[in-house]
Structures are given as structure tokens and as C-alpha cells.
Nucleic acid binder design. Sequence first.
DNA 1: ATCAACAGTTCCGAATTTCCGAACTATGGA
DNA 2: TCCATAGTTCGGAAATTCGGAACTGTTGAT
Lengths: 114, 114
Amino acid sequence: MRPLFHPALKDIKPEAILYALSDPERVAIFVKLAGANSGGTCSALADLGDRVIPKSSLSNHFKVLRESGLVLSERQGVEMRNQTRCTELDERFPGLIKAILTAYGQLPGQPKTD
Amino acid sequence: MRPLFHPALKDIKPEAILYALSDPERVAIFVKLAGANSGGTCSALADLGDRVIPKSSLSNHFKVLRESGLVLSERQGVEMRNQTRCTELDERFPGLIKAILTAYGQLPGQPKTD
DNA sequence: ATCAACAGTTCCGAATTTCCGAACTATGGA
DNA sequence: TCCATAGTTCGGAAATTCGGAACTGTTGAT
């Protein structure tokens, strides 16, 4: 297994962020991670309620999230610990993540007003 | 030629906005439109400096921008007048467009601090 | 040490999407 | 009417996405 790639903060591209978050499944995953109710493992995030994401697809989603700079993944024993890079990201792209999650009506702790 | 489709404000989906603006060429077009230095016609926006977008591709870009709700197009004689729907959009998704354009370092009248 | 179980990745083929040249359509002017 | 211009649609090659099956790496049990 080749080592997981994470871009340095300065190398994070807005187009990659927008692309990654233009898929509602990935948004759902990212939001759950940001909420951090789960342990941040992949399999804990597979269940979307209406559908269970196949694991190869899930692995792909995480790859996209990771390589866009949205998520940090590190192996911990047999499983993968994932966390968002929100704090860093907000430094590089102020307000971006918040505005996106708000648009999706998914900003944690903020009820949908829609 | 079938009539051009524009979504109603309430039907605009964040995923469509993000997808549309995850392509740097479309962002460049959108920024030029927002700046409105050009007349807003398609052909006036084809020249990106480093490359001229082929017209079928340009037409496709406008379709994506239009159907995502970012742009309003109306025929005026032989040409097409395009304008952004920024004001409406900011009502529906507060701060989103601004945050995205800032991330791209392309907010009109705002120099890149990068 | 070997084996089994499990989390996640990689491989690869089918289906979908993107890209763009060529053909086409609509409008206005000579 | 015929031509020029602005943009759309068509169609096929190339690239991307999706997901099942096979694989890898780690842990725990025997």
C-alpha cells in the first residue's frame, strides 16, 4: 500500500476543495467527521441512512477528500483515523468551509432555516 | 434551439454551484462576468490569455453556469447577454460566492495576498 | 509461526461524463 | 435572398467515476 498523500497547506487548491465538496456523499462524510460523533474511521461513516456506501467507493471518497486537503488520515492499528483540516483551511481560505457547509444547511449546531 | 433553462432561486443546489466553480476556466469566465468589463457576450469571454476556449466548450461552460444558477443568459439580437446572479445567490447562500472568489484570489478589487 | 478476521486499498471493466471539431440554427444586415 | 456572425447541438474519442473482487497490512488467537 503506497503511503497516503496529503497536500501541504499552501498547496491546497480551491478547485480541489470545491470539486470534493460538490458531491453530496462526500459532504455527508465530511460533515460527520466535522461533527466527530464517530471515531473518524471509514467504516463508521459508510452508512448514510438511505444507503450504505460500498467500501471501494468510500475509499475513493476519502482519497478525494484527503488529496484535496480537506481531511487528514492516519493509520492507527488496523483502522484509519480521519479528521478534518478545518482550522488550517480557515486560515488559508477564510470563511470558505463555513459558507459551504451553511449552504448545504449542514453547519454543525445550526438548524436548517430552509 | 431549445429555450435556455434557468433554475428558480429556491431550486438552486449548492452541489451544482460548487461543481460549476470547481473548474478554473468557468471561474475565470464567471469572474470576468462579475467584473462586467466585457459586454457579457460569450465570445468576449473566450480568451483566457493563455488559451482561447473553443466555442463548443464555451457554450458548454455557459450551460453549466446557467443551469447551476450562477448566470443568467438572454438572447439579444444575434448575441447572448450574460450576467451573474450574485445578488440573488447571496440571499440564498449568504457569503458563499464571495468566499469562493476570495479563495481563488479573484474577488474583484481585492489583490492576492498570497 | 500460522491462521483467521477485519479495515481499508488497489485493480479493472462497465457506465457515465467531458471535450471539442464539424454541422447546424437563429438573427440581422446588405 | 444571401451572407456573416453568435451561439447551440451532434457525435465520437478520451478521461473519469463507480463498485465488485482480489489484495495488503495489522491484530489477536491458537
